[in-house]
């Protein structure tokens, strides 16, 4: 190393220069790509919702969304109503799928009646699906998903995703073998109260033949992520129970 690069003045100037250059570069990249990224995120939400109600291109073992380019059209075609439930009010909103669940969860903590709960009503092959978003935390970061139900709160399909769960372990919540286990599971207990679905370790029913046990088989090595899935299903889907009660009474 030459003497020039060892001086304090040089070091400080270099540090400042580095911060400016790298900062500008990152800010520029982020700002110029923002519209593209936002559009991708928007389309992904539509794909996720459609996936949960069974509109997807799944092959035998992997989860495949409908084509991105077709997502808006299919979304319009299959999703008949986008509802926003806020306290006792139910309104329609064509952009309900863009509601930030994380933010609404924070609002709900202070005042549950102010929380906006989006619910997407879809029709496929003459059957009605109710798709609700859920949001929670896994081992490292956020996890979220969409669950579609019928009017008796029996799960018709589920899609889970995560920000940074461990590859090969917790990250497997978005694999078919895990998500498909939820199909047909009952969210309500025997007496009609809300029970949720437990991602259970040491489940006596690994083939998942018993759909009314409110349990699916957990992933080995992903206990905390699995608990996160259990928790978000319990806390978020429970809020839709009154809606389904109303549905039945009317």
């Amino acid at each position: 190393m030459s003497n020039k690069t060892d001086s304090n003045v040089y070091t400080i100037l270099f540090a400042i220069g580095m911060v400016v250059v790298v900062g500008t570069l990152l800010a520029f990249t982020a700002a110029s790509l923002k519209p593209n990224i936002a559009e991708n995120v928007r389309l992904e939400k539509q794909q996720n919702i459609l996936y949960a109600m069974g509109v997807n291109e799944n092959d035998e073992s992997s989860a495949v969304f409908v084509d991105k380019a077709q997502a808006p059209e299919l979304f319009k075609q299959y999703i008949t109503k986008q509802l926003v439930i806020q306290g006792d009010d139910i309104s329609e909103d064509d952009e309900a799928y863009l509601i930030d669940i994380k933010k609404q969860k924070a609002i709900g903590k202070d005042d549950p009646s102010k929380r906006k709960l989006p619910l997407f009503v879809g029709e496929k092959d003459g059957k009605t699906y109710y798709v609700a978003p859920i949001y929670g935390k896994g081992l490292w970061d956020a996890i979220w998903g969409y669950v579609s139900m019928d009017e008796n709160m029996v799960v018709q399909g589920a899609y889970f995703d995560h920000k940074g769960e461990t590859p090969g372990l917790g990250a497997n919540i978005k694999e078919r073998f895990f998500m498909d286990d939820f199909i047909g599971e009952h969210l309500l207990g025997d007496n009609g109260t809300f029970k949720g679905i437990d991602v259970a370790k040491g489940n006596a029913d690994p083939k998942n033949e018993n759909k009314t046990d409110n349990e699916v088989d957990a992933i080995a090595g992903a206990t905390i992520t699995g608990n996160g899935v259990t928790a978000m299903i319990k806390s978020d889907l429970k809020l839709y129970k009154p809606y389904f009660d109303n549905l039945k009474n009317n």
């Binding site: 060892d6 040089y10 070091t11 270099f14 540090a15 790298v22 570069l25 990152l26 790509l33 990224i37």
Partner: peptide
């Protein structure tokens, strides 16, 4: 041109910036 006193931080910054840009 990297000052030896802060070389580790410079390396970290370079790799982090690189990875984040690719990710974006």
């Amino acid at each position: 041109i990297i000052p030896s006193k802060i070389r580790i931080i410079v390396q970290l910054t370079v790799v982090a910036a690189l990875v984040i840009i690719v990710d974006q």
